[in-house]
C-alpha cells in the first residue's frame, strides 16, 4: 500500500500551489473510446483540478459513464473496449504499457451508480481493500475501518453492528458504505458514477454533504443526471453530448452564462 508520507507530500504540494494556480490531478488529452465498433468518446480533452469536485453532466448515452470509467481503467474489464489518447495522472499516462491497472485503481477509487456492497459483514466490506494490500494487524484494521466509516459519515449508525451483513443496510447507508470502502484504501482521487441516482432526497443530501466535506482531502469527479446536484456540489462542470465534450468551465459560469446554445438548452431543461 502507498505510504502515508507520500500522500502528505502530494497534498501539501497541492495546497501550497492552490493559492497561486490550480494543479491538475488528471489531464485528459484527445481521449477516444470504443466498445467494439461503436465509438463512445470523441477527442475529449480536459483537466481535473486537485481537491476540487468536477461534475460531468449530459443526456443519457452521452459517454459520461464511459469517460469516468476510463479514469481508473475499470473499463478494461469489458471485452472489446479500447481507448486512444492519453490520461495523465500526476504526469504519468494511465494507459502506458508499463502501468499496472491495479496500482491505478488503488490510487483512484470509484463509487458506482447502484450501491454494490459485498455480501459480507460491514466490517469486512471496509477491510476488503486494505486486507488485499496485505494489512493483517487487527488493531490497525480496526482503526482504519473506524476512520473510513467516520469519513463516510456512517460510523454512528453502524458502530454497534459491524459484524452484521452489509446487505441489511438501507440504500443510502449502503452507498455511504461503498464510499467508506473506497476511502479505506486511501486513494487520491474518488470517481463517483451517479452515486445518488438510486437514493431518495434525504440520503442524497447526506451524500452531498459528505462530498463537500471530503473535498478538503480528495479530488473528486462526479457523474450526475441531476443538474441541481452538479450546481450544488461541483467547482467545475463538463457538459457532454454524443460522446463529445461540449463545454467545460467553472460551475457558476456554466450554469449562469453558458457559451454554447446546447448547454443552455440542456441545463434549462429544454431537452434531454
Amino acid at each position: 500500500m502507498r505510504s502515508r508520507s507520500s500522500f502528505a507530500i502530494v497534498t501539501n504540494n497541492g495546497c501550497v500551489s492552490n493559492m497561486t494556480e490550480p494543479i491538475p490531478a488528471l489531464e485528459v488529452h484527445d481521449l477516444d473510446a470504443w466498445y467494439g465498433h461503436t465509438q463512445a468518446l470523441r477527442k475529449i480533452s480536459l483537466a481535473i483540478v486537485e481537491q476540487r469536485i468536477t461534475a460531468i453532466i449530459g443526456p443519457s448515452g452521452c459517454g459520461k459513464s464511459t469517460f469516468i470509467r476510463c479514469l481508473n481503467r475499470i473499463n478494461d474489464l469489458i471485452g472489446g473496449f479500447r481507448v486512444a489518447g492519453r490520461v495523465l495522472f500526476q504526469g504519468q499516462d494511465l494507459y502506458a504499457p508499463d502501468v499496472d491497472p491495479i496500482e491505478i485503481r488503488l490510487r483512484i477509487g470509484m463509487v458506482f451508480q447502484k450501491p454494490n456492497p459485498f455480501p459480507k459483514s460491514i466490517y469486512d466490506n471496509v477491510a476488503y481493500g486494505p486486507r488485499l494490500c496485505g494489512l493483517k494487524d487487527p488493531v490497525r484494521l480496526d482503526l482504519l475501518v473506524e476512520e473510513s466509516l467516520k469519513k463516510a459519515a456512517l460510523w454512528d449508525e453502524v458502530k454497534d453492528k459491524l459484524r452484521r451483513s452489509a446487505l441489511a443496510l438501507s440504500g443510502g447507508q449502503q452507498q455511504r458504505l461503498c464510499i467508506a470502502r473506497a476511502l479505506a484504501v486511501e486513494p487520491e482521487v474518488l470517481l463517483l458514477d451517479e452515486p445518488c441516482s438510486a437514493l431518495d432526497p434525504i440520503a442524497t443530501a447526506r451524500i452531498e454533504d459528505l462530498l463537500l466535506d471530503l473535498k478538503k482531502n480528495y479530488t473528486m469527479v462526479i457523474v450526475t443526471h441531476n443538474m441541481q446536484q452538479a450546481a450544488r456540489v461541483s467547482d467545475s462542470t463538463a457538459f457532454f453530448m454524443l460522446g463529445q465534450l461540449v463545454e467545460f468551465g467553472p460551475t457558476s459560469r456554466i450554469f449562469t452564462n453558458p457559451l454554447e446554445k446546447v448547454t443552455e438548452d440542456y441545463i434549462t431543461g429544454r431537452f434531454g
Binding site: R105, F112, F118, P119, G129, C178, A182
Partner: peptide
C-alpha cells in the same frame, strides 16, 4: 453479478483475488 466484480477490481483487487 458484474457489479461485485467491478467493486472488487475498483478496490485494487487482482483478477485472481
Amino acid at each position: 453479478p458484474p457489479s461485485i466484480r467491478e467493486a472488487s477490481c475498483a478496490l485494487g483487487a487482482s483478477r485472481w483475488q
